[in-house]
Design a protein around this nucleic acid. Structure first.
Lengths: 177, 177
DNA sequence: GATCCCATGTAAGGAGTTACATGATTCT
DNA sequence: AGAATCATGTAACTCCTTACATGGGATC
């Protein structure tokens, strides 16, 4: 049994929001789920084409300049099947900072401290970005069923960013102490 | 300027630990850094070959059955350059659970709760695995300079796993409340 | 008139996984 | 004798990014 292609299901999921075109999807992702999922045009357009071939998606309105898509019942089934699937393990989250730190006996302590301080700055920026997205979702007029779930994913981002920030703080103390 | 190949530097870093052969590296990674970095034989062997061509690594001892490698001064420079590089942004950590949750208005609430409960089980297993690795590092006779850094990366894993666990707890309450 | 944004797409290549092939040694 | 583990490697494939190509419409 081949494992599910996540780009496929992400595109299907996006068609259950206000996204109708490939362009919409890219815009939407860049301003909302970019912090835990990214996607490029090089994935979106070929995936849409494939989904149409498979009958999971149909073209609503074919103009030369703006193709609108909608999900079919076949697509909905594929989406909901994937949604309820339980993973058999936690995926490895590749982390370049940790990889560097792991080998940091090979550099001066102050360089590692600089790495951690810089990480803290990036995390502060990220937290600010989360607040901005939260504000944007809250202010959108549409009373969407999605809102609750979107806030939950943001909450995850915020909690992990805070935990990571605190770890930086503790690690700097360890290195200097 | 092409961005640095992380497999290359990971292999170089491994050669500053007790790893000498490609096989060693795979074993070592699987029992220590696997929770934030993975690597396969399909990457290790071609990378070692390339590193030798580039003069970053040399073969110490060529038997048919066990090739031992060591890092050269050229390789050390590549490694230390990479170690001190500051990233310009935090990488997107792809997270399939969050992707599912993001689209979960398309499924029954109890299925999302099941997803979160299952996540908690996996996180508990992971935390137990961290404790085991910590124990292993502490009990190793060799008083290594590496130890401090390895413990720091483990601490990161533990803090984030705990934060994620708490988020699951809070999210389940939100969904049911 | 030029520049930016909307909008769709393709081609090349990097990064990584999986499955396979091979053979030696060690354990039961 | 057979199974597991040690050990090195390759080929095919998936996934994804980046750079490019194209053209219409809006803005300055």
């Amino acid at each position: 049994m081949p494992k599910t292609n996540r780009t496929r299901v992400a595109v299907l999921g996006l068609l259950t929001t206000s996204c109708k075109t490939g362009y919409d999807m890219k815009q939407f992702i860049d301003q909302s789920l970019a912090y835990f999922w990214k996607i490029s045009y090089g994935q979106i357009y070929p995936t849409l084409k494939q989904l149409v071939e498979d009958g999971a998606v149909r073209i609503k309105n074919e103009n030369a300049d703006k193709k609108e898509y909608e999900i079919t019942s076949v697509g909905r089934e594929e989406l909901t099947n994937w949604l309820s699937e339980l993973p058999d393990a936690l995926p490895t989250q590749k982390n370049e900072l940790l990889l560097k730190l792991f080998f940091s006996k090979n550099q001066e302590v102050e360089k590692s401290v600089a790495l951690l301080r810089h990480q803290q700055e990036l995390l502060e920026e990220k937290l600010a970005a989360y607040e901005a997205i939260e504000e944007m979702i809250r202010e959108s007029d549409e009373e969407s069923e999605d809102e609750l779930y979107w806030m939950m994913t943001l909450d995850h981002g915020k909690r992990l960013a805070r935990a990571s920030y605190e770890w930086c703080e503790a690690s700097i103390k360890t290195l200097r102490g």
